[in-house]
């Protein structure tokens, strides 16, 4: 298993380098250069001073600039925000915890509930429950997250105001866990629904697949109790593809969090990236791309380890 994990780790490193290359290439497509973005537009009158370009290293070829940027990244220097002038890493660091709080709560809720619903649907295939759940999850996948958020805000913040409509905590008050959770409920619920709808469908398919397999028939033929057949033989094996799919869906979970964070003024990386995109603050966007990709890759690694523990075939190698 150690070899397996080591191999996954070795794959993650070139992936991260690939991400930095792609990010750098994207941002280099951006019109204008950092000099004109930094300078006072009234002073430069559209002409870029060659000396200034040289001072910032912008006269060098792209490949060299990329390597310099990479070297600085490795040192923890993500550059400075065009807009506020603060170090990018400092800006992003403050945003990581709120995003992780929102996404991890959503992940746990949607995976647990989605799996339970999906497995129950698979066990009662063709029943009314199965039918309603299939149609319901398809509808859940189809409604845009922001529309669902507007409906939730309309019902639970405007018409029947039991939840705050924005923020991480109540503005101006000291941090308290309860207050924070109170603010978390609405955005986390909205984000969970879409994710849960997908998980339900995957869990149902995975479980149906397993229930058709020969070893389940064998287990039944041996006279094992239905509980043991489903719990020990079927469910444990259905979990394996679910781990893979959950890993694959992590980026889309972050993606969904962007809009939700923005709408609920949740001070995470999603809200930051939309603000940065509106302001065209490219250094912040670059930093975010690298950090988010690193988080996703890290989560993938974690899932690989989990998978190795869950799958005896890998555990023993």
């Amino acid at each position: 298993m150690q070899r397996y994990i080591a191999r996954r780790l070795l794959i993650a490193i070139p992936m991260l380098i690939g991400i930095t290359m792609m990010t750098y290439a994207f941002i280099n497509l951006a019109p204008g250069d950092p000099v004109s973005a930094m300078a006072d537009p009234q002073l430069t009158l559209g002409r870029t001073n060659p000396k200034q370009l040289e001072r910032l290293g912008l006269d060098k070829p792209v490949a060299v600039r990329y390597l310099i940027w990479l070297r600085e990244l490795a040192k923890g220097n993500f550059g400075y925000s065009y807009q506020s002038g603060k170090p990018v890493l400092e800006i992003i660091r403050a945003r990581i915890v709120p995003t992780l709080e929102l996404t991890s709560v959503t992940l746990v809720v949607s995976v647990v509930l989605g799996t339970v619903f999906g497995v129950l649907a698979a066990l009662r295939q063709y029943s009314i429950y199965d039918y309603l759940l299939s149609v319901g999850s398809l509808i859940g996948l189809s409604i845009p997250t922001f529309f669902f958020a507007l409906l939730a805000l309309y019902l639970f913040a405007a018409v029947w105001p039991i939840f705050p409509s924005f923020g991480f905590t109540t503005y101006g008050s000291d941090y308290s866990v309860l207050d924070n959770l109170h603010h978390l409920i609405l955005p986390a619920t909205v984000l969970s629904v879409e994710s849960m709808a997908g998980n339900t469908r995957y869990a149902r398919t995975a479980m149906l697949e397993v229930m058709r397999s020969d070893y389940v028939t064998t287990a039944r033929a041996k006279g094992l109790s239905e509980f043991s057949v489903i719990g020990r033989h079927a469910f444990q094996n259905a979990l394996l593809p679910l781990i893979t799919i959950t890993t694959l869906r992590l980026p889309s979970l972050f993606g969904g969090a962007f809009i939700i964070e923005y709408m609920f003024a949740w001070p995470g990386m999603g809200q930051l990236s939309i603000q940065a995109a509106v302001m065209r603050d490219y250094t912040v966007l670059m930093g975010l791309a690298v950090i988010i990709a690193a988080l996703v890759l890290g989560a993938n690694l974690l899932a690989d380890v989990l998978y190795a523990f869950a799958d005896p075939r890998i555990r023993q190698t």
Binding site: P14, M15, G18, I19, M22, F26, I27, L29, A30, P31, L248, P251, S252, F254, G255, G256, F258, I259, S273, I274, A277, V278, R280, Y282, L285, L288, A289, I292, A293, V296, L297, N300
Partner: peptide
């Protein structure tokens, strides 16, 4: 395959936001 995985690592919505803000 590696390239596909690379593209899948960045949330699509985020990549779209960055690219649209550029072009």
């Amino acid at each position: 395959q590696r390239f596909t995985e690379l593209v899948m690592t960045i949330p699509t919505f985020f990549a779209v936001i960055i690219l649209v803000s550029i072009v």
